[in-house]
Amino acid sequence: MFDFWIILTACIIALNSSLLGSFLVLKRLSLIGDALSHAVLPGIVIAFLISGQINSFWILLGASSFGIIAILLIDWLNRKGGFAKDSSIGIIYTLLFAVGIILITSKAKNADIDVDCVLFGDINTVPMVPKVFGIPEPTLNLMIISFSTLYIVLLGLKGFKISSFDKEYAKTLGISIPFWNYLLMGLSSVSAVFSFDSVGAIMVIGLLVIPPSFANLLTRKLSVFLLISVTFGVLSCIFGHLIALVLDIPTIPTVGILMGLILMLTLLIQLVKKRSSKTLNI
């Protein structure tokens, strides 16, 4: 079933994730998406216990808050404890995920919170949900997040650039590193949580990492890098969905496979080219 809203929602998620993912990859923080998908669990459970509803804006708010808490804790471990970024991410997300599990089993046993539901969303449910101003609610939320993200990133491109490239030097210019760091992480956290809800964590993690990595193969200029990353993410979603329709297979894994295959194929072509140019030189 070809549906305008499915395509649009996927494209917005792709745009957001590959744009923010570009900076995460450059800062060697690409696994933050993975961490967020687990660390938000306590937020979901707590929001459910307070609101009593499973499908609500409160759940997303709870999840986003825990996303931000996770990021603050990871940053604290990294800076004050001297742990490497990847270790800090591992420590915090397992801790928060475990807290979430305990909360579910002890307090919310009869609620229908399935741990897997966070990990595997289903984009095909998008058109079925209630509409606001004629736009499905998740799509509208994502549109708002997407416009804000795009606006902030374009306006603050220099800040994201210098704080990712050389933060010590940036500090000597009087530029606040925590400001730019938390701005990027806060945007990523909110964007990721709202995207998990529609397409599931695996797809979001893929969109955070694969398009920027693909761009990294092709260019060494930041503006082109961001453009390639976003275009790759959005086109993969469109073509992934079309292929899935033709072959009658699920959309999300198709997009994942498509992105992974194109990335590896491009790398192989580059390696072969390099090799042949080397032999020519001899």
Binding site: F165, K221, F225
Partner: peptide, 29 residues
């Protein structure tokens, strides 16, 4: 800073990096 303090694979041109000398908190936006 010591040149080893940054990742030289970062996507930036030579001029991009030199222009950073003109950045400041007020001028970033």
């Amino acid at each position: 800073p010591q040149k080893e303090s940054v990742d030289w694979d970062f996507p930036a041109t030579v001029l991009d990096v030199v222009e950073m000398g003109r950045y400041s908190q007020k001028k970033l936006f």
